[in-house]
Amino acid sequence: MIEPKGFIQAGLALLFVMAGSPAIAQTQGRIAPAAGLETIQVRENVYAIFGAGANVTAHVGEDGVILVDSGSTATAAQLVAAVKAISAKPVRLIVNTSADMDHIGGNEVVGATGIEMNPDLFADEPHATVLSHESVLTRLSGDDKISSELWPSETFTSRVRSMYLNDDAVMVYRMTGAHTDGDTVVLFRKADVIATGDIIDLRSFPVIDMKKGGSIQGELDALNRLLEMTVPAMPMVLKEGRTLLVPGHGRVSDYAELVEYRDMVTTIKDNVEALIAKGMTLEQVKAANPTAGYRSRWGKESGPWTTDMFVEAVYSGLKNPVKP
């Protein structure tokens, strides 16, 4: 048995030996886990935090911390710890990419650790600014079960809301009508990172929540618009330079995942469209399995978002297209 003192000696000796080992930098730094969440550094000043409900993107700099989404209420304290492990600066801005509880649930707790973008001298307590599309506030304020403490403090309706923070251009794009009617994506232009919200969910077929204003055509429009904003590693295909994407759920990704996702959704939409043209009912379309080739990778047979629900959303969206 190794005695504690001996163990320390051995450990120090081992560290000494390993210090001589080469260290080639990983492109994706992994931060020590904070309170059960995982943080991956995707750029010098941008981090993706996993495990707090939806993915949370953190952009840090001289002005403070900008968060895209605040995760779920249950993990809010863990998210606070994870953010503090990244930066001692206060949270200044939270952007909600939709009204889903796993995106806005931490607004109160995480926001309370911060300071407004424009400090309100008359406010009782400082609180980070919470920005979203107007529809998010409409959704949340219309639901009695949701505390007003989770509501955004500032909304917008324009095509884009741009700010210059942390020495970076922060551009919040309206892409409503894809996953829900409150969708936004956030482009950190200098860092070249886009937080896409649930327009991309790399775990499954995209969740098109028709009850909240989502639609298949809105989803495709958003994916094609994201393709215009996302730059691949080209022409120098071996270099690391490229736009990085932090999806609403799933791993850090880039142009290649976005193309595959767009092509998958488009192909299935085309398949359903062809079956509708043959006069098939929804049940007949489901039975024809228009997701064949993609179902194993993206589909779920149970849970909150099944393959059948996705097919139904596509079918309904094509039969009753949303008027722009």
Binding site: S21, I40, L244, V252, S253
Partner: peptide, 23 residues
């Protein structure tokens, strides 16, 4: 190949499932 296959021999740990995939 359009991406090199770099075989690490230094015993580094596995990447997180949340890390970027490459070619």
């Amino acid at each position: 190949l359009r991406n090199d296959i770099r075989i690490w021999m230094d015993g580094r740990p596995a990447l997180s499932p949340n890390a970027l995939h490459t070619a």
